[in-house]
Design a protein around this nucleic acid. Structure first.
Lengths: 240, 240
DNA sequence: ATTATCTATAGATCTATAGATAATGC
DNA sequence: ATTATCTATAGATCTATAGATAATGC
């Protein structure tokens, strides 16, 4: 009977695929757990509201382990951006590219451009909030702060913003550029507020609406913003 | 010669008006300087990004003086809210009351209501940014955070929000309540972003626009938001 | 032999308090 | 006599490093 034989071959065989690169995989897992914990905490308390001890405590490791894997708090924060932001950027650039390609440059509309730009981000908040809600809050904090915040936004999100501006210009070739930037400013503010998920709306409306309800946000937002943009870009009616 | 006599009467006389309540006035001045310094720092770095030492250092006093006048950081933060928020609330409630009274309940429009609500706040940012810019940033931070932030907003600003909701309902009696709250959500987000003054717009537009330019914000915002609200409140055209 | 993790601890910083000082207030 | 402010300092907390340990890797 080759029971022992088969077992002696089986056990290493069954272990190998998991044991191979065991250290590297443990390392990766630790880093991910640290980043996950830090992401949640930064989302809730902001950059300065979180200590490395907090992060370590949340996942039950010594705080020195964090120093072993990362070069301090700023380095963790940057790693959080580096693993999420490019995914969002890619999603949205791709959505806009696809939209423009589908309808053709001459048929680009304000609402169509906004749907591409807005919905790509809302979709991941709807489909996988566990992965994206916290980073959304972190990005919202950054988009509300001059200095370090503006720098993070610039480093990661400028191409997405400029791609939207580009589509809007094509949709409204007669609108002056300043007005388009102001329109973007309002859209950006609303989007930032969405991502913050503050729960204020729930309270103000006595539960009629919830700031976590991204399905409703998706239903209304592009329509709202398109009408707003077209209103201020409309060649000087009552104003000036 | 009553030179000495007159002097002995004069000096106290000329000093009295200033010397009277001298301690109380010094106290008040110190408290105001502390609050001013803390307000600037909180606006720039957020609640957790500021220490009592920072505040003391900014005005060149010992950090123990802060403990003498205040009961810790949270107490200073609350005092900052208490001296500014009610002024803003009063301005805006008054602007809305005046608007409704002037045009009459039947003639209330979405854009009119928004002008009252929005412009009252923008005006102080335009006319006296030195007094209001920092607090605007602090309120923006609070309106972007669940928990402590939502609580501050609730404690101070709920009446202003509900007064706007009320006007919007009167302007659009056929619009369902949920949609009105979503409309408010977008307006609130844009307004919050205005207050943040991040400088992002300056960079994105290569100086064509500036996020400190509240005159331009005032020119566009109510028009933009009114069109947006009316678009989503319009009885189901393309949507659903 | 390497490395993921821990314990112990040093140094920096922050909050908070006790006690001293030099003015104003009566 | 009261009070606005300072100096000195204790206690807590945070970051960062040194050295030990127990695994995996070759």
């Amino acid at each position: 009977m080759n029971t022992t034989d088969s077992k002696s071959m089986q056990v290493p065989a069954s272990k190998r695929p998991q044991a191979r690169n065991h250290k590297a995989r443990v390392r990766e897992a630790s880093i991910e757990r640290i980043l996950d914990a830090a992401e949640q905490l930064f989302a809730e308390f902001g950059y300065h509201g979180v200590t490395l001890k907090d992060v370590a405590a949340r996942i039950g490791v010594s705080s020195t382990l964090i120093h072993y894997h990362f070069n301090g708090k700023e380095s963790i924060y940057e790693a959080i951006w580096a693993r999420k932001a490019p995914v969002s950027v890619h999603n949205r650039l791709e959505a806009m590219r696809l939209y423009a390609e589908t309808v053709g440059d001459d048929a680009i509309t304000v609402e169509g451009a906004l749907h591409a730009w807005i919905d790509a981000d809302l979709n991941v908040q709807i489909e996988d909030p566990e992965t994206w809600a916290a980073f959304g809050k972190i990005a919202a904090q950054a988009n509300s702060a001059a200095g370090w915040g503006a720098e993070k936004m610039t480093n990661y999100f400028n191409p997405v913003v400029l791609a939207l501006i580009d589509l809007l210009k094509k949709a409204m070739p007669d609108c002056d550029e300043q007005t388009i930037f102001w329109a973007y400013h309002f859209v950006s503010g609303a989007m930032t507020h969405n991502m913050s998920r503050t729960g204020r709306l729930d309270e103000l409306s006595h539960g009629l609406c919830s700031s976590d309800d991204f399905v409703s946000i998706k239903r209304h937002m592009a329509t709202f913003m398109a009408a707003g943009i077209e209103a201020i870009c409309r060649p000087s009616d009552s104003k000036r």
